[in-house]
Simulated assay, not measured.
Amino acid sequence: MSQQQSPDNVSIDDIPVDIANTQSEKINPADVPDEIESITRGLAGEQPPTNPIVVLKAARWWYLHGKGGSDPAFQWAIEWARHLATDTPSDVEQFDEFLEYLVSLDFAQNRQTLRGRAND
C-alpha cells in the first residue's frame, strides 16, 4: 500500500473517509471534498454526470458522512445511477427533496441557483 492510513482516516480511493465524522446530521459545505462537491453540484445541475461510477462515488461519501441511507444526497445519487443504468425515468419528488436538502446545507441560496438558472 503506497499511502499511509490512520485508523480515523481511511480511503479506498482519493476521497478520504473521516471516521470521526460519519453519519452526521449536519454537513458543513466546507467539509465536503472538492470532488464530491463538484459531483453533487453536477447532480443538481442541468447537465448531471452520466458516468454511474462517478455518481456512486458521491453516493458513497454522502452515505458515510451524511444521514446514512436516509440522506437525500445519497438517495438522489442512487436514484440517478439507477436511471443511468436502466434508462427509466427518475423520481422528480426525490430530486426536489435533494435540491431542498442542498439549500438547507447552504450549498446555494435557492434551488434555481443550483440548477444553473439564477434569473428564473
Rank of each mutant, 00 (worst) to 15 (best):
S38N: 13
H65M: 08
T22R: 14
Q109E: 15
G66W: 06
F74Y: 15
E46M: 10
P16T: 07
A58N: 08
I36P: 04
T50D: 14
D14C: 09
N51A: 13
F107K: 09
L56N: 09
L102D: 12
R117I: 00
S11K: 10
I12Q: 10
I39M: 02
F74V: 03
A58P: 09
R82W: 13
D31N: 14
W80K: 04
L43G: 00
P52R: 03
L114R: 05
W80S: 03
L56W: 02
N51V: 06
P16H: 08
I78E: 13
N28A: 06
D91A: 03
D13M: 01
R82C: 11
S11P: 04
G45F: 05
I15G: 03
V55D: 04
A59D: 08
W62K: 07
G42C: 01
P16A: 09
A58M: 05
S70A: 14
W62Y: 07
R115A: 08
Q75T: 10
P52M: 00
D34F: 10
E79T: 01
W61A: 02
A20G: 01
G45Q: 04
R117Y: 06
S11L: 00
A108V: 07
T22H: 02
I39T: 00
Q23N: 14
G66T: 06
N21Q: 12
T88Y: 05
L84H: 12
L99I: 12
I53M: 09
A77F: 03
R41H: 06
S38R: 12
V54G: 00
E35Q: 14
